[in-house]
Structures are given as C-alpha cells and as structure tokens.
Amino acid sequence: MDSNKVMENIYLLVTVTLISAIQNAFFAQKVERECTSHKTQTSASERVSCANRNCMDAYPTFLAVMWCAGLCLSQAPAAFAGIIYLIVRQKYFIGYLGETSQSTPGYMFGKRIIFFLILMCTVGIFNYLLLRFYGSNYKEYVEMITSAATALLLLP
C-alpha cells in the first residue's frame, strides 16, 4: 500500500487530532495564565485547573475511539464526531470557568459523542468478524447508516 492511499484513509483523523492538540495547548496556556496571575489559589484558578484536568482525563479515550471508529468503519463520520466533540469540550471548558452548572450540558453531550464513537468501533469490528468468518460484508450499509446517524449528534 503506497503512502498516498494510507493518507487518503486517515487525513481527516489526523486533522482532528492536530486540532485537538492545539486545543490542549490553549487549555494549558489558560491554566498557566490563570495560575500565575494570582499568588494564592483562587476559586477561578481552581476551576480552570479542574476543567483542564477533566478534559485531559477523557482525552485518551476520545482519541482511541475516534481513531478506532475511523479505521474500523469510516473516517468521515468519525472525524465529524471528533470535531463536534472538540467543540463540546471547548464549551465544557468555558462553561466550567463560570458556574459549574454551565458545564453540565457540554459534559453530557461529550458523553453522547464518545458513546457514538464506541458504537462505531463495535459495529466496525463486528462487521470485520462477519466478513472474516462468514464472508458477509455489510460495511457499505453500515457506513451509510453511520453517515446519516452522525447528523443526529447535532441534536441537543
């Protein structure tokens, strides 16, 4: 397999991963700025630090399921779900800077996106097993359903 074919299959996932790394740098910069601007720990610096820690705790899971969903099933819906997750994570982070109750919608929406990506991974693996052991390939049907279901992620 040549490198162009490999890049064709993963370039959207790579783009979302790069955007997420830039977002992590933004979060880290925000935490550093908030912590260095106050000599003592204030509630604002504690909230920023806690929001960053919460985002970083979920980050490996997000990356793993996004890449698995993209490789096992279809990269476009997985990358779209990844972009939506990054937007939701930004909303969560900013919401956490205000009242903690403002971050709850972002948290719940993020969980729904992670669940969708896990479901994509599971379906992709199940389809591979069907193809491997029974010769039945439902990937085209599943990709069509997944692409249509991705739009449902936009519903609040």
Score class of each variant (00 low, 15 high):
residue 93 F to W: 02
residue 101 S to C: 09
residue 147 S to I: 01
residue 154 L to V: 12
residue 156 P to T: 14
residue 99 E to S: 13
residue 54 N to K: 00
residue 119 L to G: 13
residue 27 F to T: 08
residue 51 A to C: 15
residue 106 G to Q: 11
residue 104 T to H: 11
residue 124 G to N: 14
residue 102 Q to T: 10
residue 44 A to C: 02
residue 133 F to R: 01
residue 152 L to R: 14
residue 92 Y to Q: 04
residue 47 R to E: 07
residue 156 P to F: 15
residue 50 C to T: 13
residue 91 K to Q: 13
residue 63 L to A: 10
residue 136 S to D: 03
residue 101 S to I: 09
residue 154 L to W: 00
residue 71 L to R: 07
residue 134 Y to E: 13
residue 30 K to F: 10
residue 26 F to M: 14
residue 25 A to W: 01
residue 136 S to I: 12
residue 114 I to K: 05
residue 41 Q to L: 05
residue 55 C to F: 09
residue 38 H to A: 05
residue 134 Y to R: 15
residue 130 L to W: 05
residue 65 V to S: 03
residue 59 Y to S: 12
residue 127 N to M: 04
residue 135 G to M: 00
residue 110 G to V: 03
residue 118 I to N: 04
residue 74 S to T: 01
residue 149 A to I: 13
residue 105 P to W: 01
residue 85 Y to P: 06
residue 106 G to M: 09
residue 116 F to P: 05
residue 2 D to R: 11
residue 86 L to A: 03
residue 56 M to G: 10
residue 106 G to C: 09
residue 45 S to Y: 07
residue 106 G to L: 07
residue 66 M to Q: 07
residue 75 Q to M: 06
residue 135 G to C: 09
residue 19 I to D: 00
residue 84 I to R: 12
residue 37 S to T: 14
residue 114 I to A: 05
residue 63 L to D: 11
residue 135 G to S: 08
residue 66 M to C: 08
residue 30 K to I: 15
residue 86 L to M: 14
residue 19 I to P: 00
residue 50 C to W: 02
residue 6 V to C: 05
residue 64 A to C: 08
residue 54 N to C: 00
residue 29 Q to S: 02
residue 150 T to D: 00
residue 93 F to Y: 10
residue 5 K to L: 13
residue 105 P to S: 05
residue 124 G to C: 08
residue 132 R to A: 07
residue 156 P to I: 15
residue 43 S to Y: 08
residue 150 T to Y: 01
residue 52 N to A: 14
residue 86 L to V: 14
residue 24 N to I: 10
residue 86 L to T: 04
residue 38 H to F: 05
residue 57 D to M: 14
residue 117 L to H: 07
residue 127 N to K: 00
residue 145 I to P: 11
residue 130 L to K: 06
residue 108 M to E: 15
residue 48 V to P: 01
residue 13 L to W: 10
residue 80 F to G: 04
residue 75 Q to N: 01
residue 15 T to G: 04
residue 8 E to L: 11
residue 143 E to L: 06
residue 134 Y to D: 15
residue 77 P to S: 11
residue 126 F to E: 05
residue 11 Y to G: 09
residue 84 I to G: 06
